[in-house]
Amino acid sequence: MSAFASSLRPTLRAASGAALSARSFSSSSSRSVARLIITGRLAAQPELQATSSGREVVKYTVASHHGPSSKRQTSWFKVSAFVEGNQREFISGLQQGTLLFVEGDASIRQWEDAEGRKQSALNVVQRSLEVLKRPYNPEESSD
């Protein structure tokens, strides 16, 4: 057997074992995670807020349209981003109308309101963000 083939053997063995242990390649925790991908426009200027523990979070809303143009509907997704430094400044500086691609972890939070009615909300925590297109701003174009 060649040195090249013998150097691949541990890799091949690991690959065949991966079917038995599906998460052996992942660096994330083994608990279940609901992942959500949103493509849509930034509904308003992102806001910087502090959590109850004092940690800063950037919150923003993405509007995503679906359905035929005659019956187009809009879904509004509220996203939280726990980012620091340049990333926080970048997101905070995005303009309303910017086309975004957001990947996040999704969870449903449930509670009872003051009248005893059950309420629920979708929470999306940003994992990654990509700007697909910035809104047209004629003031920024060069003459």
Rank of each mutant, 00 (worst) to 15 (best):
S21N: 14
T98S: 09
P68G: 02
F90W: 12
H65Y: 12
A5S: 11
E115P: 01
P135Y: 03
A3D: 09
T39R: 00
E130H: 07
P135S: 00
P138H: 08
M1K: 12
S27I: 14
S142A: 13
D105R: 06
Q119F: 07
E130F: 05
K71R: 13
Q126L: 04
G67W: 03
A5D: 13
T61E: 05
S69V: 14
I91P: 02
R31Q: 09
E103N: 07
Q119G: 05
A3G: 01
Y60C: 03
A15M: 06
R134D: 11
L132D: 10
G97H: 07
R41A: 04
M1N: 13
S21Y: 08
L42T: 04
G40Y: 04
E139K: 13
A44Q: 13
L48R: 15
V83L: 09
F82D: 02
D143Q: 12
F101L: 08
G104T: 06
T98L: 03
L129Y: 01
A19H: 03
H66A: 09
S7M: 04
T11Y: 10
R35K: 10
S69G: 02
R41F: 05
A121Y: 02
R72H: 07
A81H: 02
Q87P: 00
F90A: 08
S52F: 08
Y136T: 13
D113T: 07
K78L: 09
K59R: 13
F25Q: 08
F101V: 00
S32C: 02
V62M: 02
P135H: 02
S26Q: 09
E84T: 12
V102P: 01
P135E: 03
T61K: 01
V125N: 11
S26A: 14
T98R: 04
L48H: 11
A50Q: 14
I37P: 00
Q49G: 00
S141G: 05
A121I: 04
T61A: 07
F25R: 08
L100P: 02
F77Y: 15
R55K: 12
N137P: 07
A44F: 09
A14M: 08
R9A: 11
S27C: 07
S2I: 06
E115T: 10
S64C: 09
A34L: 11
S53F: 10
N86F: 15
K71H: 14
K118A: 14
R35M: 11
S29I: 10
L132A: 09
R13G: 01
V33A: 11
S32W: 03
L48G: 09
R41N: 12
R35F: 05
P138K: 06
F4T: 13
G85T: 12
R134E: 15
S16T: 15
N86G: 06
S26R: 02
V124C: 05
V79A: 02
S16R: 15
S64K: 04
K78S: 13
P10L: 00
